[in-house]
């Protein structure tokens, strides 16, 4: 068994260092960012995932150089209010602000850019967090169509819209790097409410999806991506039954999964929660060779992160910011 483990570790390391990291480095654009696909326009989200992956394996000048350029990209693209927009031509910040902050933190850049980004996250409130909205919801005739509590809210994808599982998870994941003492009572309360929102939005039986957990009394089907990030955001609560149920769903679902994204995210979660990983490195490597579609930058980043034994990116600490 140990021999198999050693072989697998070697295979993972070779795959990361010979395939994933060179692919990421070679796909970086001149402006320091990455597009969703190699050769495409730079965007904040793929740049964040590439930065997180490269930071996880930060050795050698080439990677350092790529990271420096990426930091420059984030600095250049930050909007005056501290946020980042999903596409450089957009004028309003969005959920990618969490990812940009996370990437800056991973690359060891605790500058005013990071502080301004985290402050924006602190101030950013979804459209469903206001009293006016809740009052209107109470009066709406269709309020009972989807089962969810209006008492909880987290973060939205775009300003002024509703809270959703993924952007809330990203915000919680980056805010987790701040020690509790650095958070105001209000911020601590907001984080608690956001975690409650995640539990409230869980699909019956475990896992999360991109929509509502139940509509017209019918349970929604969970999906890998929101389930993975919600579980990572709730890592400290691993003893709760909801976590256990969701991990069980993810483990069971891994048998049928056939995409690098889902394989990698499933592996990351099962690994950090101490379960047996679902897709070994040699299978990921084999899939890449067989694939007739180029891996996207986030896919390559997630695969590289899934093969890290350290998982530093999930244990970052920020010491210079108070919210």
């Amino acid at each position: 068994m140990n021999d198999i483990r050693i072989l697998e570790d070697k295979s993972a390391s070779a795959f990361v260092h010979q395939e994933c990291l060179p692919y990421l480095r070679q796909s970086q654009n001149i402006d320091g960012g990455w597009g969703f696909l190699a050769g495409k326009d730079s965007r904040v989200e793929p740049t964040a995932w590439a930065t997180l992956a490269l930071s996880e394996y930060c050795q050698g000048n080439e990677i350092q150089d790529a990271l420096s350029k990426a930091i420059g990209f984030f600095q250049n693209l930050q909007l005056a209010d501290g946020s980042w927009a999903a596409s450089p031509s957009q004028l309003r910040g969005s959920w990618v602000t969490s990812l940009a902050c996370w990437a800056l933190l991973a690359s060891g850049t605790e500058t005013e850019n990071l502080t301004a980004g985290l402050r924006w996250l602190q101030e950013d409130r979804p459209g469903d967090s206001g009293r006016w909205w809740r009052m209107l919801r109470r009066l709406a005739t269709n309020r009972n169509i989807s089962r969810q509590s209006d008492s909880y809210y987290g973060w939205s994808w775009t300003p002024g819209t509703a809270s959703w599982v993924e952007p809330t998870s990203y915000a919680l994941l980056v805010l987790r790097s701040l020690p509790e003492a650095a958070l105001s009572t209000e911020m601590q309360s907001r984080i608690r409410i956001a975690k409650q929102m995640l539990y409230d939005r869980m699909c019956p039986g475990g896992g999360w999806n991109c929509g509502n957990p139940m509509v017209y009394g019918v349970a929604g089907e969970p999906q890998v991506t929101p389930t993975a990030f919600a579980l990572l955001a709730l890592l400290e609560s691993s003893s709760r039954s909801e976590i256990e149920e969701s991990l069980n769903w993810l483990e069971k679902n891994s048998v049928t999964v056939a995409s690098p994204t889902s394989n990698a995210l499933t592996n990351i979660v099962l690994h950090v929660f101490g379960r047996q990983i679902a897709t070994p490195a040699h299978a990921l490597s084999h899939n890449r060779v067989q694939d007739d579609i180029s891996w996207s930058i986030p896919e390559a980043g997630w695969v590289a992160l899934s093969l890290s034994s350290k998982q530093h990116w999930l244990n970052l600490k920020c010491s210079s910011v108070r919210l």
């Binding site: 991109c210 999906q223 991506t225 995409s259 994204t261 180029s294």
Partner: peptide, 28 residues
């Protein structure tokens, strides 16, 4: 709109089996 893992969806519907190689044909 409801799942960002487009790759998983097109694999699950077996698009490649009907259309052939997707690299120059399918755009997410």
């Amino acid at each position: 709109a409801m799942d960002r893992d487009t790759r998983a969806i097109i694999e699950s519907v077996h698009l490649r089996e009907y259309v052939g190689p997707l690299s120059r044909v399918f755009v997410d």
